[in-house]
């Protein structure tokens, strides 16, 4: 092997090792990403929300919240999930179809979930807004109630 290539090779190899050394301690915060650190999202809300998610949301939005490409939108860090709570609650109450979501279109419709109680909608939205790497304020029962009353 030519000396120049060898030097490159060595540099590259040591780079990999150093990257590993550097990466090792960085593992911890990644692991704790899923921990709930939002004071307004109570533990009960998160537990109930998770149960509702597994019952009513998981088949389209998937266990990891990634959704299905071109079919069902992801719930991870999208403006629809993290943004305006009024819009988000309304989607659960009334459903949504064929709207552009952060620049993408999706084939399937979001059916209305108005069969869920105000508390259930608050819980599942709180869960979604604080799972899959999301971090946003809780949704409360009175917020859902007010919007449902508006119709």
């Amino acid at each position: 092997m030519k000396p120049f290539l060898l030097t490159l090779f060595v540099l590259f190899s040591t780079h990999i090792i150093f990257a590993q050394v550097k990466k090792a301690p960085a593992h911890k915060p990644v692991a704790s990403k899923n921990r709930i650190e939002i004071s307004s999202a109570s533990k009960a809300s998160m537990t109930n929300g998770q149960a509702i998610y597994s019952q009513s949301c998981v088949s389209c939005h998937q266990p990891d919240g990634y959704g299905v490409q071109n079919m069902n939108p992801p719930l991870i860090k999208t403006s629809y999930v993290l943004g305006d709570k009024t819009r988000l609650i309304t989607i659960l109450l009334k459903g949504l179809s064929h709207q552009e979501i952060d620049g993408n279109m999706y084939q399937n419709v979001m059916p209305s979930h108005d069969f869920l109680t105000d508390q259930q909608i608050a819980d599942v939205l709180t869960y979604v807004r604080n799972s899959f790497g999301n971090k946003a304020s809780a949704v409360t029962e009175p917020e859902v109630k007010a919007l449902r009353a508006k119709k």
């Binding site: 090779f9 060595v10 190899s13 040591t14 990999i16 090792i17 590993q20």
Partner: peptide, 25 residues
Amino acid sequence: LKTHFLSNFKVSATKIAIPVCIALS
């Protein structure tokens, strides 16, 4: 093994680690 290897690397970076790196890479 990894920890062991990394501590070796710190002890004598130039003598041992580089050939090992080349081999591994």
